[in-house]
């Protein structure tokens, strides 16, 4: 168990089956070290989103154990799932913002859930928005923004509470190449502060020049 102390994520023989005889993930084993950043790649349908959903307990594994920060999350209670998600930062493929809320309120939400004080919230939300280049849009409604901007609000929301682990599912999928490169740079900066990051993307050109570990999924398994 000594080696596992340095892993923030561990997958032990994990399989996920949505429908009979079709494994979305087949006997997956991997570790993500504390403070490590890695990319999860593979064609559409390879199981990237499924893998991230398992870590955030949005889906339950069919077989195997998933250990996050030393805790087996395979059979969490409902409140356990909620606290796991509060602890993580998650960027979703579609931003998943609250429509009738301002940009500020959206980014403040995870901090509120964690019980931060009002002044601590404001001292974190604005810098997070500056980081994604939306410092001047805090008072706008989320729906009044472009898709790309919404995606960046989603990123700001995921990092505002400085989570130890950030999961991102196609975070640049809706962004133009220049902006996508900029966001990638942002993730690199965050990783330098010690944040462990796992990013799913099918855009190999975006990560080819970066020197990070690449976990390549194909039909639910890692190609080694």
């Amino acid at each position: 168990m000594n080696s596992s102390n340095n892993n923030i994520i561990e997958f032990r023989n994990v399989s996920k089956r949505y429908v009979a005889y079709e494994d979305a993930l087949k006997n997956v084993n991997f570790d993500l070290k504390l403070g490590e950043m890695a990319f999860l790649t593979g064609p559409s349908g390879a199981g990237k989103s499924t893998l991230l959903k398992l870590i955030a307990a949005m889906e339950e594994s069919t077989l195997g154990d998933i250990i996050v920060a030393g805790q087996n999350i395979s059979h969490l209670s409902r409140s356990g799932v909620a606290s796991l998600r509060r602890a993580l930062g998650m960027v979703f493929q579609d931003a998943q913002l609250l429509e009738n809320y301002t940009v500020y309120e959206n980014v403040a939400l995870p901090l509120t859930l964690l019980g931060f004080r009002e002044k601590d919230i404001s001292s974190r939300v604005q810098p997070a928005l500056e980081l994604v280049g939306l410092g001047d849009k805090a008072r706008r409604y989320a729906t009044a923004l472009s898709i790309g901007e919404q995606q960046r609000v989603g990123i700001a929301r995921a990092i505002a509470h400085k989570p130890p682990l950030l999961l991102a599912d196609e975070p640049t999928g809706n962004l133009d190449p220049a902006l996508a490169a900029e966001i990638m740079q942002l993730f690199i900066e965050l990783n330098k502060t010690g944040m462990s990051i796992l990013i799913a993307t099918h855009d190999l050109s975006l990560i080819a020049s970066l020197h990070y570990r690449i976990l390549s999924l194909k039909e639910g398994s890692f190609a080694s």
Binding site: A56, M58, R78, S79, A82, S83, L84, R85, R86, A87, L88, M90, F92, Q96, L97, L98, E99, N100, L109, P110, L113, R157
Partner: peptide
């Protein structure tokens, strides 16, 4: 809205 709340970790 409820779905988003739960994704973010609201109990």
């Amino acid at each position: 809205e409820i779905k988003v709340f739960k994704l973010i970790g609201a109990n």
